[in-house]
């Protein structure tokens, strides 16, 4: 070892040490990158391993077809459908608000707004994205629902309409920003062609730009659905935490996420069926959002190369 060292020049030795360090650094960086992969595996592993005991006690058939979810009652029923119904209803209300508003905002920003308006509006939308969801939940329960009760006095304190509307407002910036990106990516030449034919801005936007950007706009909607399904605090605060198999937005109902929160707020007995049931609910949620995210990404990527 000592003999070998004396054979190489100090400069070369320095080089070897340096290259070795470079190698170590690269490995450390690579490991950090790998964390992202590990987290995904971790999620899948934990969700599956913790819910296996649950699915030993409850059949898949009961889980997916029973319309009663009463894990805390004497007669326990584990049908996920009421939670799914609540989740979909609230997301539906949110989309009814967010899709028109988001799409119009996107068209306006991409085709109509002056540079100055754009520079002012985009930061505001970004700020809206930054508002924590627990604050939105406060508004749903203590501001929007009381307002709705003035119009519709029979509305209960906990309902799916109020949180749905608030969630819709929360989602508008997401739809607007993804859809606007898609519309801005449409080449200027296509707009110029349309203007040259005598079309107005609105005609160009609706008949040329929007069809050309369909994939991106649809992707925006899909990602918005995924966000709505995974949203937790708004619904846990304002929609009630009682599972209720209904699609009527004036009723109160629990979502998948609200159920997980309600169980976590109580005393969790590690290994009990209540503990396992939130992982079963979680895996349902994860599968739903993951497939929507993949579908959204796929839609967005599939048609982008066309121009």
């Amino acid at each position: 070892m000592v003999k070998k060292k004396s054979n190489i020049s100090p400069a070369l030795a320095k080089n070897i040490r340096r290259n070795f360090l470079e190698r170590i650094i690269e490995l450390v960086l690579m490991f950090s990158g790998l964390i992202a992969v590990l987290i995904t595996f971790g999620i899948v592993y934990i969700l599956v391993s913790e819910s296996i005991p649950f699915f030993e006690a409850v059949t898949f058939k009961e889980f997916l077809t029973s319309t009663v979810w009463t894990p805390n009652f004497e007669i326990k029923n584990y049908g996920i459908l009421p939670l799914v119904a609540g989740t979909l209803t609230i997301t539906g209300v949110a989309l009814l608000v967010a899709v028109p508003l988001g799409t119009i905002t996107a068209v306006y920003l991409s085709e109509f707004a002056s540079h100055r308006v754009k520079e002012t509006v985009k930061p505001i939308l970004e700020l809206l994205v930054g508002v924590p969801t627990v604050v939105f939940g406060y508004f749903a329960l203590l501001l929007v629902t009381p307002l709705l009760q003035k119009i519709y006095p029979d509305l209960s304190t906990f309902n799916m309409l109020g949180p749905g509307i608030v969630m819709g407002i929360m989602i508008v910036p997401y739809i607007a920003s993804v859809a606007e990106d898609a519309m801005r990516a449409v080449p200027m030449a296509m707009r110029e062609g349309s203007y040259a034919m005598g079309a107005t801005r609105f005609q160009t936007a609706v008949s040329v730009v929007m069809p050309a950007a369909t994939s991106g706009i649809v992707a925006a909607y899909i990602l918005a659905i995924s966000r709505g399904i995974g949203e937790t605090m708004i619904v846990a605060i304002a929609a009630g935490q009682q599972p209720n198999f209904t699609f009527n937005p004036v009723d109160s109902a629990a979502t998948i996420t609200a159920y997980i929160v309600s169980v976590a707020l109580g005393d969790l007995e590690h290994g009990g069926i209540g503990y396992q049931s939130i992982f079963a609910a979680g895996i349902t949620l994860f599968v739903m959002t993951l497939s929507l995210n993949i579908l959204g990404q796929w839609t967005r990527n599939k048609f982008t190369e066309r121009y």
Binding site: I39, G42, F279, T289
Partner: peptide
Amino acid sequence: DLIEINVANLAGVPSIIYGLLALGLFVYE
């Protein structure tokens, strides 16, 4: 590509799922 796809997907995972991961992994395992 593998890392990239994972990062993109992690950004879309609902926050409560991270809570479940942490409950199973950090709190108990």
